[in-house]
Design a protein around this nucleic acid. Structure first.
Length: 582
RNA sequence: GCGCCAGUAGCUCAGCUGGAUAGAGUACCUGACUACGAAUCAGGCGGCCGGAGGUUCGAAUCCUUCCUGGCGCGCCA
């Protein structure tokens, strides 16, 4: 189950050993930096099974030329029984061809490891906290949150699969002014529930119908005692009830998407526990917070009501930000940033590494929070790797026509609408067919199409086709068997080679924190299977089920089962259910 | 004005942190169903990787500088 069992890392080790031998023999200087040495499949399969750039990377520091170095390496590598040929190509690549048995063994490895195929120990149990969604508890989720939710959840799944100890966390912003606004909006619905005609919801409050049930619940609970009452009498009560209700809505949406967080961290509780004060004290002690006056904002928008005020400022400029940032407002309350800073300190206490998934509209605040974590990780006495992944906007379309989204009017498209219409798996997979830091379009008409235009369908179809083939085989009294895999040749070996890349795809995707690569890999593998399957249309001898040749059929069925396994493992990372039939 | 993201085939997008002749799908053209599901497959057409400089054995990828589009930018959240 360890990464040592993958073909690519096995050969990386062999090349490493060959280099060691050359060092011992005195033909290569010791202490060369080998981190840029790669072992990869060549882009062009006709070049061989594996390629390494070792000779090119090391030639210069070794003060020799690439070809001379490559010749020595080839000599060592040719001695390996698994290598059928080793050639120097182009500017100094070494191309290796491997014994076919190596690839057949990989099919067995998939079978043996099953759901564990592709898992790796790369993460080494590193505790990674992934914070995602964190939508404000002022209403149900909408599309803007959805992509971040899916991307974050898939990333968490990917990191788990690659051996990290992942915590999925949601930061509940239940302390700012927006929850007071929520409470006031709920108060209106409360009066409405008691029979009052409240008319149009005033500007600045939340108009959505989703507040009507909470208004009713408050009416049931309190009767009319707060109808004419001063805000100070009911605000806290209404706020708590509304936030709780909104979180229930959001959790329901998340459940629809198959997302479950381990921790819902409350900003209000964080503040009540005095965490921001602790952070401030530490930062002041290290001269990272000081009392100062902000410069008037630059730019074209003239600051009409700008007044210079002294505020506690965090020295984010010391860490690359454009200006220092206030952690408290002039009314003495914490700014969002001040609380968020303390929140990240809290997360860092229980994690080795932090990842935030944010919407692109928060891009402007990335620098300051990175600065804060950089400063605070010193306080923890360890460097906390911290990454903010920005997820760009999604534009909703139907048949190429943009769908209007208006939160103001309250009739925006909800997650519930979307999942109901196209299904959880389609939403998740589609959101992952584009790298997150580029904008994407989501066309309702397209994602439900059962065609190649729709990648979800395409991958699912490959999996379903495998299952259907197995059912058909059972009817013919044929079963998958690994008794004689030497029947697997040609196109079958090609497909194995492709599937065999799954473990290294997982690792490189995990390293880059990019779950979408898994989605693309699955499309390629599905395509390979469809191609393979279809070869039987032209030539019945190439079908998976060849009734007159049971040994061949058994081997091909075995291979198909393992391809299905890899597809399932990949879909599993993305949180998409593999289907048995369409 | 500043920051972040993007710019790759007509269109939608990949490109595995610097590798070999830049890849898929779609559209268009040609071909394949007495079927383990043709919801698919095979072949063809299609490129100054936004422009210009630079770094090195080697650049779509890194640096500089422009251009275009998106998103942001005060004690909001």
């Amino acid at each position: 189950m360890s990464d040592k069992h993958t073909i690519y890392s096995a050969f990386a080790a062999k090349i490493d050993a060959a280099l060691d031998a050359m060092v011992t023999a005195g033909t290569l200087p010791a202490d060369l930096d080998r981190k840029n040495v790669s072992v990869e499949p060549p882009r062009d399969p006709s070049h061989g099974d594996l390629a390494t750039n070792a000779a090119m990377v090391l030639a210069k520091p070794a003060k020799t030329n690439p070809r001379a170095l490559a010749e020595q390496l080839v000599e060592h590598l040719s001695a390996d029984s698994a290598v059928t040929s080793a050639e120097i190509a182009g500017p100094g690549f070494i191309n290796l061809r491997l014994d076919e048995q190596i690839w057949r063994d990989e099919v067995l490895a998939i079978a043996t490891l099953g759901e564990g195929y592709g898992r790796s120990a790369m993460g080494a149990g590193t505790r990674v906290n992934v914070e995602y969604v964190s939508a404000n508890p002022t209403g149900p989720m909408h599309m803007g949150h959805c992509r971040g939710a899916v991307v974050g959840d898939a990333l968490a799944g990917l990191l788990e699969f690659s051996g990290h100890d992942v915590t999925r966390e949601y930061y509940v912003n239940d302390a700012g002014g927006q929850v007071d606004t929520l409470a006031r909006s709920a108060h209106i619905r409360y009066r409405e529930a008691l029979g009052e005609d409240v008319g149009e919801i005033p500007e600045g409050l939340y108009p959505g119908d989703y507040l009507k049930p909470i208004g009713q619940a408050l009416a049931d609970k309190f009767g009319d005692q707060y109808v004419g009452a001063d805000e100070s009498e009911w605000l806290i009560e209404f706020r708590g009830a509304s936030v709780a209700a909104m979180m229930e809505l959001i959790k329901a949406d998340l459940t629809l998407l198959g997302i479950h967080h381990d921790i819902f961290a409350s900003e209000a509780e964080l503040q009540a526990a005095g965490k921001p004060e602790v952070a401030e004290a530490w930062l002041r002690a290290h001269d990272l917070v000081y009392d100062g006056v902000l410069e008037a904002p630059k730019g074209k928008a003239p600051p009409e009501d700008w007044e210079p005020v002294e505020l506690p400022l965090f020295r984010s400029t010391k860490f690359g930000d454009d200006q220092d940032r206030p952690i408290k407002k002039s009314d003495g309350k914490w700014t969002y940033f001040g609380a968020d800073l303390a929140y990240h300190m809290q997360k860092a206490e229980a994690a080795d590494e932090l990842i935030d998934i944010w919407g692109a509209d928060h891009a402007g605040t990335v620098k300051r929070i990175k600065a804060a974590v950089a400063a605070l990780s010193e306080g923890q006495g360890k460097a906390i790797p911290f990454d903010v992944k920005l997820v760009q906007m999604v534009q909703l379309l139907r048949g190429g026509e943009p769908l209007k989204m208006s939160k103001r009017s309250g009739n925006f498209i909800t997650i519930q609408d979307m999942v109901k219409e196209v299904g959880k798996d389609v939403v998740r997979f589609t959101m992952l067919t584009r790298k997150p830091d580029a904008q994407m379009e989501f066309d309702f008409a397209k994602v439900v199409e059962t065609s190649k235009d729709n990648p979800v369908f395409y991958v699912q179809y490959a999996h379903a086709r495998i299952q259907s083939t197995l059912r058909k085989a059972a009817d013919e009294d044929l079963a998958p068997s690994a008794d004689d895999l030497s029947h697997l040749t040609g196109q079958e070996l090609d497909m194995i080679k492709q599937a065999a890349q799954f473990p290294r795809m997982v690792e490189s995707a995990a390293r880059a924190r990019e779950a979408h690569r898994i989605a693309f890999f699955l499309q390629d593998l599905a395509s390979a299977f469809h191609t393979y399957w279809n070869a039987g249309n032209d030539d019945p001898e190439k079908r998976i089920i060849v009734p007159q040749n049971r040994a061949v059929s058994a081997a091909r069925l075995f291979l198909s089962v393992q391809i299905g396994q890899v597809l399932r493992n990949g879909l599993g990372i993305l949180g998409v259910q593999a289907v048995e039939e369409l």
